[in-house]
Write a protein that binds this DNA or RNA. Structure first.
Length: 411
RNA sequence: GGAGGGGUGCCCGAGUGGUUAAAGGGGACGGGCUGUAAACCCGUUAGCUAUGCUUACAUUGGUUCGAAUCCAAUCCCCUCCA
């Protein structure tokens, strides 16, 4: 199986500039390729995981990935796929984000190989550009006519939304990134999400015009779930990859709870499990979809957070769901009785962070959402008493079916 | 520089002097059904020492018994013209 065949089978490929030529190039030589990541957040989330997995597979086949950190372009802001321009981030924030989000590559990519990843930052060249020289040398290769025809621009104009000149320049700078990486590292392939197609093609054109070299572009499909929603970002928090942004258990739960229809697709995209093995599973007559979700959750969690965390997460999940919260691995909070002060249950729920206000916790209790020691609480102003605690001086509080915590009694 | 439109809760969006903590939708959360899935049904969705109080419709000030709603100034966004 060739690299491109494997990618195709696993569902990584959306568009490719010249797949036949790219295929033969990949067979003949080990190339250098790049994927760009912007620095708009403190961590990458599952939305970027497809790109990261791509790098991993390319590396497995011997090619060298360049992780391009877009500190420079983040200062401009990519208009692709966005209705509105977003607010500009400060240079300090961008630096900080850049530092935090690159941690994850050490986990997914192998630093010990000969083809270990190259880390590059486009601020290194973009920040020193001389405007006049840049316009003379590269500006001449771009026509406004063509730039206006790109989706990212057209969409904004069609909807009569403003597109600032700064954002309009984004595509030129990204094209220049590709040229720069081509010159520095003989980079021959750029990979990106499907919304990056226009930007990638621009870079390829620029390289052809500047140095008459043929380079390639490849895009991944937009990662959506079965409901056709963009994955990885929710209102109250994305599925972050950095451990300090999302715990391994929550990460495990994310994969455990994917839609039935997504399971095999995700297994192919986000695990190292052999493609033939996955197909066998899929063909099984009496398949147990839930055990396969566990397999997915374990494989994905192990890759990011390590085997121990994956095992622990599965065990915690078993305790939480099969035994209604008998785990030692639950969050806990300590409490001490004082004759004069009542300990309200709703305050404890806020204390572990399950709700953000006492009112919210009270409403939860009122709506039959809270149990202590598996018994429904009906009094929204419930105060704790010694009798609520068991012999180990512990009290199990369940918020909904999935969230539990332990209150420990201190002497 | 000129003309016009607009800024409402997590998001979209209705409301143009009083029963407005603000319709409707989305999202999120809880309950029911279930498989920790999907679909569907019900409820909740500003805070608090809670039949009350406080804060909230860009900001500040004003008119009024009473303002998201009227007036003024300021800030921001958008469209068109030059």
């Amino acid at each position: 199986m060739t690299l491109l065949e494997e990618l195709e089978l696993r569902g990584f490929i959306h568009q490719c500039t010249d797949s036949d030529k790219l295929d033969s190039t990949l067979k003949e030589e080990l190339i250098t390729f790049y994927i760009g990541f912007d620095c708009t957040a403190k961590s990458l989330h599952v939305g970027s995981l497809m790109q990261i997995m791509m790098m991993r597979i390319f590396q497995k086949y011997g090619h060298t990935p360049i992780v391009l950190i877009g500190e420079g372009t983040t200062k401009i802001g990519d208009p692709s796929g966005k209705d509105q321009s977003r607010k500009m981030l400060s240079s300090e924030d961008i630096k900080l984000n850049s530092k935090n989000l690159t941690k994850v590559f050490d986990i997914y990519l192998d630093n010990t190989l000969k083809n270990k990843p190259i880390y590059s930052n486009n601020a290194d060249w973009l920040e020193n550009i001389n405007y006049i020289n840049f316009l003379r040398d590269y500006g001449k290769h771009f026509t406004i006519n063509k730039m206006l025809s790109f989706d990212s621009v057209k969409l904004r104009l069609d909807r009569e939304q403003s597109l600032s000149f700064v954002e309009f320049n984004y595509m030129i700078l990204q094209a220049y990134d590709y040229l720069e990486l081509h010159n520095r590292h003989n980079c021959k392939l750029q990979i990106g999400g499907s919304d990056q197609w226009g930007n990638i093609v621009n870079g390829i054109d620029l390289i052809r015009r500047d140095s008459s070299k043929e380079v390639y572009g490849l895009t991944t499909p937009l990662l959506t779930n079965a409901k056709n929603e963009k994955m990885g970002k929710t209102v109250d928090g994305a599925v972050w990859l950095n451990e300090d942004m999302l715990t391994p258990y929550d990460y495990w739960q994310f994969w455990r709870n994917v839609d039935d229809r997504d399971v095999f697709r995700f297994l192919k995209l986000f695990t190292d499990i052999d493609i033939a093995e996955i197909n066998d599973l899929e063909d099984k007559k009496d398949l147990d979809i839930n055990s396969i979700k566990v397999l997915l959750a374990n494989a994905a969690t192990e890759m990011l957070h390590g085997k121990d965390n994956a095992i622990l997460s599965e065990k915690t999940a078993n305790d939480v769901f099969k035994n209604e919260g008998s785990s030692k691995n639950l969050p806990s909070i300590n409490v001490k009785f004082d004759k004069n002060i009542d300990i309200y249950l709703n305050e404890q729920i806020v204390g572990v962070g399950f709700t953000s206000s006492k009112s919210e916790a009270r409403k939860l209790i009122k709506n039959s959402g809270v149990k202590i020691n598996r018994v429904l609480v009906s009094d929204e102003l419930k105060t704790l008493s010694i009798n609520d605690f068991d012999n180990n001086k512990e009290l199990l509080v369940s918020v909904g079916k999935k969230k539990h915590f332990i209150i420990k009694l201190l002497d």
